[in-house]
Nucleic acid binder design. Structure first.
Lengths: 193, 193
DNA sequence: CTAGTGACTAAAAAACCATTTTAGTCATAT
DNA sequence: ATATGACTAAAATGGTTTTTTAGTCACTAG
């Protein structure tokens, strides 16, 4: 089967990117790990960047699947949101890829890594946006711009997971979920006065 | 008067840092602009970084003043928050120093510049934190961790002002105010069901 | 014919070294 | 006691050589 080789190339590249980063992975190395000739890679992918893009797309699809699976149709938006968030966090931690790419962006500013993470971010935001739209239709959330809301929810998540721990202790998953719930869903206004 | 020289050193350094950046400013150059011998600088500041820190501290004090001036005692927490942050950002943009330092961080990752901007951010967060504490005491906000809250409010503001406009149209001041109010204070939960 | 391949090349990155610049010192001067 | 500029060790810079690497292509096996 022909796509047999294609698959092993993708697998080899994915592990190497995750392990050493995009920049530090050479096409020769990928060929070696995948146990194919270097020319073979170019039968399936026109360029190294193309290869990364495909891997990121696969990753995004997997993540979407994980998130979708965590959603229980009958449950509330908040509960589903927390559940999905929790599963995605778990899934992302398993994958070294994004962590490594983030490091690379910070350290070298590798343009391909920047773009890869960018597109991943877009995928995630699009997904959240679609769920927000549903929740608004169902009357669970009040009217709001779904694009901006999705963007901010994602960013807040990143702020809590990544940026906060640069200055202080990193926060446990449960606390992150409850914080997002507190700020975003319930709001800080004191209605019990 | 002895602190006469100290002042001119600070002024010279501040203008040169703002104009050429921290890295591209040499101590010789500062001495020249300040019209003092290089040794004189070291009578007042033990190191180049020390000099930057002092300048940043002065800057932070000015910023705090701007923020305080923007606060109207009778108004709501959110309204004051947005007004103050807006003035602070405007003030920061007027000053070339922070812009130049930001560029330097992006381009070279100069550690001193990173730290300087970091400490500015901390000052801002500390200020917000103190206002949040007041608002909680006054019963305007419900109980919450003031440090995390301040951090997230600051970040959300930056997300809306800077990060959003990298992908989409930049948002007008009023909309940012109402968005922060919507997400942070009121919350998205639809309580009218 | 088709998919696979590794030797090959031009271009980019890294390693190297000579030269210059610069942060910080200090002996001297005021 | 404060001010200073010549001085030094360390770091930055620039230019050159060497190595690595993305991508090609003539060739092979099936």
């Amino acid at each position: 089967m022909t796509s047999d080789k294609r698959k092993s190339v993708i697998d080899a590249a994915a592990t190497s990117f995750a392990h050493f980063g995009y920049k530090a992975t050479s096409m020769d190395q990928i060929a070696k790990i995948a146990k194919v000739g270097k020319g073979t890679i170019y039968n399936y992918f026109s360029t190294k960047e193309e290869l990364l893009k495909e891997i990121i797309q696969n990753f995004a699809a997997e993540m979407r699947q994980v998130a979708t699976d965590a959603i229980t149709p009958g449950n509330s938006f908040v509960s589903n949101f927390n559940e999905a968030l929790h599963e995605v966090v778990k899934f992302r931690e398993q994958q070294e890829l994004t962590i490594k790419l983030s490091q690379e962006v910070k350290e070298f500013g590798t343009p391909e890594a920047v773009e890869a993470l960018q597109s991943l971010e877009n995928e995630i935001c699009d997904f959240i946006e679609s769920r927000i739209l549903l929740a608004i239709e169902r009357g669970e959330l009040r009217e709001c711009d779904p694009k901006i809301t999705a963007f901010l929810m994602f960013k807040m998540y990143i702020n809590l997971v990544n940026d906060w721990k640069e200055r202080h202790e990193s926060l446990p998953k449960e606390q992150i979920a409850s914080l997002i719930n507190l700020y975003f869903i319930e709001g800080l206004a004191n209605n019990n006065m």
